[in-house]
Amino acid sequence: MPLLQYEAPTSLAQARQALAGRSDAKILAGGTDLLVQMRLGLRDPALVVDIKHVPELMEITLGEQGLRLGAAVPGAVVTDHPEIGQLYPGFVEALGLIGSSQIQGRCSAGGNLCNASPAADCVPALIANRATCNIMGPDGERTVAVEAFNTGPASNCLAADEILVSIDLPRPGPRSSDAYLRFIPRTEMDIAVAGAAVALSLDEAGVCIDARVAIGAVAPTALLVPAAADALIGGTLDEDSLNRASAAASEAAAPITDKRGTVEYRKKVVGVLVRRAAGVAKARIEATS
């Protein structure tokens, strides 16, 4: 019978040591994906490295520059935080959509990202917020934009001995907000058929001066859609610019037909979600200024 080895390092150095030279190891954060995959027989690691005892992975730092979110901080800690939700409401609502209340106590933004599901809810919201990943490896640290982190379904840019330590979200400017919407056939406990995150900055006249649009579950990885953002920038989120942003998102989408939806359906719905998410983000800006 194969034996499963478990390590729980208490520092980044120890974690690096545990992973050194091991290609058969998996990192365990909340385990809400890994344990399920192991149980289903989809993954069969010989070593599990639990990184919840490494301080850097469990810290929240909110400052002038923005948010540094430890990769293993549970979703519930983020959604309960008094300030994060005000700065990045779309990101927090995306993170809060993952699983049930019980899952929220374990799942993390870092885990959601590393699991590299094309349908991961918080990834488009991170991309829309220009988030970057702080990665620690044997040769030191490196930084990767979230949109470049995942390389395909269930694959990311981490080498076997690298660890995602934290995610940085820059502090949004004035009159800025974001929103994330996903489509599921039910109301909860489901996986996105399509998802869209929109981050906006408006000037005093209501003209969009900055925008980021990211879409999920409609391509092998979550996509940044510059053409959709371009359609919004310079306009007042009027019908015409929303139509163009929606069409750009549908155009950028490269989905598959599977048990959760068809190519045609996903392309259409992701455009609808972009339009609606832009409306929510705009309403949030107007409500707070």
Binding site: P185, R186, T187, E188, M189, D190, I191, K259, R260
Partner: peptide, 24 residues
């Protein structure tokens, strides 16, 4: 029930076999 062309059930779990949840 969603079968593939080999007769293998593709949604053998409550994630993709969607019974309503309470909030629905």
């Amino acid at each position: 029930y969603l079968f593939n062309d080999q007769g293998v059930l593709e949604n053998a779990g409550f994630l993709d076999y969607r019974i309503p949840v309470a909030s629905d």
